[in-house]
Structures are given as C-alpha cells and as structure tokens.
Design a protein around this nucleic acid. Structure first.
Length: 199
DNA sequence: CAGCAGATTGACT
DNA sequence: GTCAATCTGCTGC
C-alpha cells in the first residue's frame, strides 16, 4: 500500500504520472475488486480554472479537497456519475487527481455484475463514471482515507517514461486557457484508456 | 427561487 | 451523430 507521504507531496502533476501502473483496490462486502491505473488527470488547486476549488471555492461538495493528501474525493457529475479523485498535498491545499480508467485485475465478475454487463470489454472500466461504478465507489466514500476499503498499491508494475503520454483534460473547455494545460496522462497503447486509445 | 451548465454515459436515429 | 438522465452550485431576477 502506498505510504501517506506519497500523497502529501507538493507536485500534483508528478503524482498524477506516478499513479500510472499503480493498482487501485476496493474491498467491500461483495469482495475485492482492483485494476491497474492507466489514465489520470491533475487538478492543481486554487489557481486552476478547471478545478472545483478554483479561487479558493469551498462548498459542501469541495470541502474534502482541502483535506491532507491520501483521502478520496468523490463527487457526483451530471447528477448521475460518481467520479473518484485522490486528494494530494497538505491540509488546506486543495489538489486532487481524477482517476479516469483502470485495466481490470481482480474481481472482474463482481465488476461485471455492478455494471450489469456480461463480457469483459474496455467499456467496463474506461471512463471515470464507469470505473467508479465497477469498483463500487460512490459519493458516500468521499473523505475516506485510502487505507481501508479503498486503497492504492504498488505491485512493482513498471511504466517506462516513454510509455507515458500527456494531453489536455477532458470536458474542461469552460476553464479557458487552463483547458490547454497538458494535465491528462495515460499509458500509451493501453486499450482501457477512456479516449485516444493510447495514441 | 428559476434557470443553466457541468471533470459522463448509454440508448437511439 | 444526437440527446436525456438528474444533483450541486452559481447567476440573476
């Protein structure tokens, strides 16, 4: 399991890259489900127009982002989808990383049941809403420390620097010039990446 | 308090 | 390719 000081570092963009190849695990009543993180996006706090915490905004929803690194920030998008983020940096610095896609490892039958699907295809976990549903993550888990039912492990999977690709974040056109920041990272060629399919 | 847009997905034309 | 689903929070009356 990743130590707390993995999350409390100051450079959210670096942590977003470091998360690629790590294994996101959930362990709820139905059993253990997990997958390799293949796509992330960094949201760099009060100065980032794409972030919910831009300008120091604090609401019921965003309050969790101000926690110290190493807890989950889960919020509802479009009233339907539960999006899972990893909070980073120290208390009161609202950095977070959206985990957009995983490559399924364990508990694939459980994930298929949660998604109401029969066959394993990239659609099972490619995309932040789909991934959270497969892992059983919901807004009720926001604020939970990543050391109990939801956690991230380093299983020694090596991702070469040359296999990490960056691009603009998805769905943040409203962020004006910040929409062009290369804060989205994914593993080149991995079929479980939500868009671009590993270009 | 009404209206609108959003870090999305899946069903349908 | 188009569009509805439906909660949070911002804007403006």
């Amino acid at each position: 399991m990743l130590p707390e000081d993995f999350y409390t570092r100051k450079h959210v963009v670096q942590i977003a890259k470091d998360l690629l190849g790590k294994v996101l695990v959930t362990d709820f009543e139905e059993g253990r489900t997990s997958g390799i993180i293949v796509e992330t996006e960094a949201y760099a706090g009060v100065g980032d127009k794409a972030s919910h915490a831009y300008g120091g905004r604090r609401t019921t929803r965003t309050e969790t982002m101000y926690s110290r690194g190493g807890v989950a920030y889960v919020y509802l998008c479009y009233g339907i989808h539960h999006l899972f983020n990893v909070v980073t940096n120290v208390q009161d610095i609202p950095h977070a990383i959206l985990v957009r896609a995983i490559e399924p490892l364990e508990g694939i039958d459980i994930m298929l049941a949660r998604r109401n699907k029969e066959k394993l295809t990239p659609q099972l976990t490619a995309g932040p809403g789909a991934m959270s549903q497969a892992l059983g993550i919901s807004t009720g888990h926001t604020g939970l420390a990543l050391n109990t039912h939801i956690f991230i492990e380093d299983r020694g999977i090596k991702v070469r620097k040359t296999d990490i690709v960056s691009g603009t974040r998805v769905g943040v056109a409203y962020a004006l010039e910040d929409a062009y920041l290369p804060y989205r990272f994914w593993i080149k060629g991995n079929p479980y990446v939500s868009r671009g399919k590993g270009l």
